[in-house]
Nucleic acid binder design. Sequence first.
DNA 1: CTGAAAGCGCTTACAG
DNA 2: CTGAAAGCGCTTACAG
Lengths: 329, 329
Amino acid sequence: MTIYDIAREAGVSIATVSRVLNGGAVSDATRRKVQEILERCDYQPSQVAQGLATRQSKNVAIMTVDIRDVHHAAIAYVIERTMAAAGYGSILCNLGGEPSSAGEYLRALSAQQVDGVFFIGSIFVTPVCQDYITRYIPDTPVMFTNAVLPVKNAYGVLADEAQGIYDAVMRLYRAGRRQIAIVTDSETSSEHNKLEGYLRATSDCDIEPMCFHTERSMQGGQIITNRILHDYPGVDAIQYTEDITAAGGVHTLQQLGVAIPDRVAVIGCNNSIYCTVCYPQLSSVDNRLHETGRRAAEQMIRLLNREGGVERTICLSCGLILRDTTPAM
Amino acid sequence: MTIYDIAREAGVSIATVSRVLNGGAVSDATRRKVQEILERCDYQPSQVAQGLATRQSKNVAIMTVDIRDVHHAAIAYVIERTMAAAGYGSILCNLGGEPSSAGEYLRALSAQQVDGVFFIGSIFVTPVCQDYITRYIPDTPVMFTNAVLPVKNAYGVLADEAQGIYDAVMRLYRAGRRQIAIVTDSETSSEHNKLEGYLRATSDCDIEPMCFHTERSMQGGQIITNRILHDYPGVDAIQYTEDITAAGGVHTLQQLGVAIPDRVAVIGCNNSIYCTVCYPQLSSVDNRLHETGRRAAEQMIRLLNREGGVERTICLSCGLILRDTTPAM
DNA sequence: CTGAAAGCGCTTACAG
DNA sequence: CTGAAAGCGCTTACAG
């Protein structure tokens, strides 16, 4: 069933069929006649042919390190749903560890004529990635979440994680905690922001900063927490920059028989499902993944529609969700 | 940069360029000359134009209820990576609650000329879904994971979950447990299989089956576990058909001060990351999601290459991963 | 081995 | 308002 079949059936030219399909100028009588046939045949125009003619594929790409990461999945989910509602398909890309594989994907995506590209996670903020963008998709709108890159076709939606961590640490301080440690677990710009929020809070409270680093995992959290407790027995709160690492910390505290939150309070970050699976349930900084994804997709749609009014970067403020690992006030 | 530019540059026809691109018959000298230009220009053929000419989009679709579900994400991840290695892009579709929305997606996907469709999860095994497949993509290979549908273009890869649950329950029995309950949490064919495995095991052991049903969630697990303990204080083991529900059960047991596994043993299903985030760490039936996804993608690639030797359904056996919620023997 | 030409299914100036 | 025609960038019989 092609546009030719419809045209023949309606006794008009294919140009006219195309016009009623795309809302062009057509007489009411003709429009009705064609539309009737369109519906009767359940006609669906070939997106591939449309793509060749218009140079728009009606597809966007979602670049992520690994969709199995629950945070990335949360953002990818909203993006896909929002884009689908606007008529766009979402091509999923799992880049794996190194951002360099972004090059191969981007090259393939340019051959696919994707209309827009989302980058989920701040791991992509690297010179090499910037290079790939200017080489392969210099004119395709690019939307970052939790990051920005100084490229003319790039935009970003990010959560103010520095403020989120700042607020969390201040809350611990107001609850009487004075030896508040932080555990970071990667080297992204997002992590730097979190650390900055922590340092600002400890400075404002005039308490000694205690910074630790480990691997982002249950095990990483367990190892570093063991060491913190051993080396600094006076610690009374630990802020982690990721829930899964915090969950590892909670396990270690449980195993050592350290009362949570009475002896040591714990706060994670991302407010993921891990918070409730963990026992006791974990308090966490809410960096508003769902909202981030939604706004990113909405901005992208505006860009694709050339609507204007698209801000270069949008900054969302973080919340704080208190559960069972923080003391009441 | 089109095939015309390359042809002009090389002083040959576009047909010849197309042939060297697709491995057609070309003289060695010509091939070398063209190839040199191809590389120098970093030429990349338009997949859209190729798609129109060959009727192949080099894209597959991954249909899932919700990519935020860690099990679906695990399978989608492998599929995407395997298909990408074979030169196919993966279009992600989150259908949401009702399988009926599969219709809209499938209609759009047929306009996109996707080369194959994956369905993740047994929720799609419904007559309405079968209808959509025969209506919109009657000739497109369809690969189910953890399900099968009696359609000529449909194939499946599934884990033998009946056997998995059977083995788990037998393990509990051999550890001396005699009041072993099961908690199911949905109505899919997958759940029926699990229940069947449980009933077979209790029958073989000649113990009384105790079947309960709840919502698939932490909270669902907490509620039902409270009730089981209240109504059947003698219960000494609970098998859940999903880790997250089991994690809810573990929380309740912890809160009630019931010793795990000494008083009550717990086994989940899916061997997901929730098993290690949960405290104590959860034993679980391993239904081999990664392997399922890998095999599904490999089968699909064979189908797309018309290689033959593709089995209608592949059945993987389940394992049992023991952690801290089951007694030693 | 190589090229001219038709075709894939649309869109969009350009005339009328 | 409507149609004939060119064009989007490829592939593939068909001749030679």
